[in-house]
Design a protein around this nucleic acid. Structure first.
Lengths: 210, 210
DNA sequence: GTCTATATAGGGATAGAC
DNA sequence: GTCTATCCCTATATAGAC
């Protein structure tokens, strides 16, 4: 008689599929779709190239699997960070906090998204455009209301969106040049990115205060 | 007896080398180094692939030629835009104006630079890091002075640099996603980018006003 | 200088043994 | 499931005729 499989209390040694997945994640994020090499992924996973095709039929399918998971993990957090129960400026501050926290945990993600956005805009936009555009419409309405009530200055909501996201994302994408220009070391720049949460919040706060 | 060559009053028909160069410029900026195809460049220039190698020995050399020129045309303008004879906030406004003007004329350039910066940071940084870091030091000193004199609020100069450049550059890089999320058409987004000069200037002005 | 033809290399994908 | 061997396409680069 078969014994029922025990639930995974101890972490199992990573199975092949998971190893491939994790290796692919690194490779794609680091080098983009075109730059990624199936051979590198196989090497990193410690297996043969053919096995990649056994588990995921093609590079394209592997990419979709990896990126769907990564993005589904990250993107849905974005609208949720927007707390709905406090004044608008405080909500934006929470958003900045949560957003930069995600970026600190996934520092290569912005460059990756920017790159794929240029090389293959349709794919990303079709996957996540709708997911993000509905929350934006809700936020936009609130911004307009807060402007009416005098809580914040009159500002174009589309520009405000670009400002907030851009202020958070840009240092991650432009890191090598910023390091050189400012003369910061790796460690100093890491600290700079952590400090950035506070700075961006204050910067936006001042710009929006009536 | 040979007659001296007339100066080029009339534009000469573009010679092969120039045609190749211009075609390569488009291809590399649009698709990045890895994505670029020698065949596309040859087609666009209306010549054979082999001629590319006759004029420029390899893809790598062609890339360096093209990008050195493009970047040498654009980067040195950046420190020059900083007028030295007016109050600090006005200088920053001039900088934003001039910088966004450059981007409007080269809308694909930011994505290209971001991408190469990630794939091959050393190359770009070594070419232009020094060129930009000296002006930054001068600007930083002035920012600190203006903070002392109370002309602007106390702000960290490194963060301020990231803010100003990021606010200008980000919409160009994230364009496809921003179009989708905001629901803007191509034409509306073009106008958005033009309006952005004014918006960014005001945003920075408010954030820095004492 | 410009072309055709071809060499060479790299990478994704498949066949088939075990 | 995992490996070895190989196919096949694409892309850079070169040889050589004109």
């Amino acid at each position: 008689m078969k014994v029922a499989r025990q639930p995974n209390l101890e972490p199992m040694p990573e199975d092949t599929e998971a190893k491939i997945f994790r290796a692919a994640e690194e490779e794609f994020v680091a080098r983009g779709y075109k730059g990624a090499r199936m051979q590198h992924i196989a090497d990193q996973a410690g297996i043969n190239k053919s096995l990649l095709h056994y588990y995921y039929r093609s590079k394209e399918k592997l990419f979709r699997a990896v990126f769907s998971k990564t993005a589904e993990k990250v993107f849905p957090k974005i609208p949720k960070m927007w707390g709905w129960d406090v004044p608008l400026i405080e909500r934006m501050e929470r958003f900045v906090d949560g957003y930069i926290d995600i970026l600190l945990k996934n520092p290569m993600l912005p460059s990756f998204v920017m790159h794929e956005l240029q090389q293959n805009p349709g794919q990303l936009v079709s996957m996540f455009g709708d997911l993000l555009s509905f929350p934006f419409q809700k936020v936009k309405e609130e911004i307009l209301r807060s402007m009416e009530s005098g809580e914040i200055r009159k500002t174009d909501p589309e520009h405000l969106l670009a400002n907030v996201v851009g202020l958070c994302v840009f240092p991650f994408v432009a890191r090598p040049m910023l390091e050189k220009v400012t003369g910061m070391s790796k460690e100093e720049f890491d600290q700079f990115l952590i400090d950035r949460k506070q700075h961006v919040k204050e910067f936006i706060h001042r710009a929006l205060a009536p």
